[in-house]
Design a protein around this nucleic acid. Structure first.
Lengths: 335, 335
DNA sequence: CTGTTAGCGCCTTCAG
DNA sequence: CTGAAGGCGCTAACAG
């Protein structure tokens, strides 16, 4: 690994001059610049990130903290982040948070100037302490998929989404509508909890009853969804439609139903949430939210904050949209 | 941000001593250690990664270079990497490679000691030049999902997988078997190309014909798969079974078939490749490969290489397995 | 056992 | 416009 002084020596100039051409300072004559550049190219020299970072006081990397990086939607968000970051020449450190316990320490240690130049929180629902810890953090932080007080956030109106999905089914004529699958795995209000609230409000507004059996709760895992679906279909009065908290659930629900001879949408309408890429090809009705865009937008705002005012707070609500496909239809026997 | 000398001063010791307790050197008296530790805790001090890295000559981070990070399988591999890395206290820099053009430069700049302590290549198929560039790289590199000469690699026998899938269908009695979707998007041999080779060999061994129409080629995108499926079903002699190059294709194929009234598996058997988590719940027959494990194993080997001999080369072939579910069955009209 | 000091490679004044 | 020198925070070698 050759160093800046190797280059300086070889070019017959001082290290300061090399540093200047490296950082595109105008204070270098064209002739000198050309010579240095030639040497750099010839030696295949690249400045040390470590040394540069130590000297400038900022690591040239972004950090993304992701909760449950097991979902397709997290992947989409990540892609948006990566694309925008790399456009600006930033790589990104990925940190997966699984248990809520150690979450605080991990984030505190990662979101520091000697680790990264900025942080992205993806689907993180921190408790109040964690939020206040992040407020005025040394490096700017943007929350994606979660509106956090005092922290720049990209988010959608999950409650409205849950309501839209439910109203779509109500408009089709459904009255027995179930909700699968909410889980309170954290302190704050999770997106799925908000969607469920929207579902409940829509049902109430339409004067429709929600039996306790109709709202399924549990961790977001396929087997749980599967079981929930079967419980629903085993009821004396099974629902004619299901609002799924996410497309990944909807897919399993539809499959589980069909596996026992319950046809979709003839016997059971299913609507998802997210509009994953595959939803279109599976003909899944859903509430679309801009996943990729949320990541891209978040990264863009973060980069902006880094350059301008790291302490300012920006809120950005992304639009959602009802997408009607072939997994939802009027209930059997309706006119 | 307090520094090591702040701590030293506060504790009434030299920076060397603080450094020693930081690095768990035995050359510190228990009393001194306790005092320093107390101060560290009190000041909430954390050593600078940047400074430490510069001093030790190695960044405390791993780097993962992923090709087309859009697939669920890439995500699984990534999870394996992250879990193992974080166990050992490493974070990982994620770098997505989309175009093959700039790939070389990007990798060369990223896989250096001032950027990371080790690199993981995920589903990368570099050309010969790139491979030789990586051989004897300054930081150790492990290839996941691709056996590269001179580079430690985790891989499966894709050709055998393609053969197994095809033989499964042949054993069920199928004779008209198609293959969807291969694409040569790189210099080296892609996994899907190898699977297709296995498919062809199995067909040839069974004395079965493979019409040109039966092998579909194109970029790995859902719309392409959809079109390929419809072309297949529009044939005068449509196949009774399809070998899909990946589960993500298989899902689209099955859906596309059912959408036009072709039932799976009664009218069309479909077998995938990967065994994504959702495959089980969709009842998809498939060739299972250990995705998560490939990432975990790769990371483990990399960490090992970093500690022991960075230049040694380790090959590790992971097992694959035929998983029979409800998307494959004997062809219509067979006894 | 512990304090001191010399780098690690780069950026950034400060003179010239 | 350019060279020299100090400093970023930490580790490691060297005296004590």
């Amino acid at each position: 690994m050759s160093t800046i002084s190797d280059v300086a020596e070889r070019a017959g100039v001082g290290v300061g001059t090399v540093s200047r051409v490296l950082n595109e300072s105008p204070l270098v004559s064209d002739r000198t610049r050309a010579r240095v550049l030639a040497i750099i190219d010839e030696m295949n020299y690249r400045p040390s990130f470590l040394a540069r970072g130590l000297s400038t006081g900022t690591a040239g990397v972004l950090a993304a903290v992701v909760q449950r990086m097991t979902t397709p939607s997290a992947l989409q968000r990540l892609r948006g982040i990566l694309d925008v970051a790399s456009e600006s020449g930033f790589d990104v450190i990925l940190h997966n948070v699984s248990s809520v316990d150690d979450y605080r320490d991990q984030v505190r240690d990662l979101l520091r100037p000697d680790r990264c130049a900025g942080g992205l929180l993806v689907s993180i629902q921190p408790d109040d302490d964690a939020v206040s810890m992040l407020t005025g953090n040394a490096v700017p932080v943007v929350s994606i998929d979660g509106q956090l007080p005092g922290i720049s956030s990209i988010y959608i109106d999950d409650e409205r989404g849950g309501r839209m999905a439910t109203e779509h089914l109500i408009e089709l004529g459904h009255e027995r509508i179930a909700f699968v699958l909410d889980w309170e795995d954290s302190i704050g209000f999770s997106p799925t909890a908000k969607r469920r609230t929207g579902y409940r409000k829509a049902m109430a507004d339409a004067g429709l009853e929600v039996p306790d059996d109709y709202v399924k709760v549990g961790p977001h895992q396929h087997p749980v969804t599967l079981a929930a679906t079967n419980e629903l279909l085993d009821l004396d009065e099974p629902p004619t439609a299901v609002v799924a908290a996410a497309d990944s659930h909807a897919m399993v629900i539809a499959q589980a139903a069909q596996a026992r001879g319950v046809r979709v949408p003839e016997d059971l309408s299913v609507i998802g949430f997210d509009d994953l890429e595959i939803a279109e090809h599976l003909g899944l009705s859903t509430i679309r939210q801009p996943l990729y865009e949320s990541g891209a937008r978040g990264a863009r705002i973060l980069l902006d904050l880094m350059q301008t005012d790291p302490r300012s707070v920006i809120y950005d609500e992304l639009p959602i949209e009802m997408v009607s496909r072939s997994s939802s239809a009027p209930p059997r026997g309706s006119r």
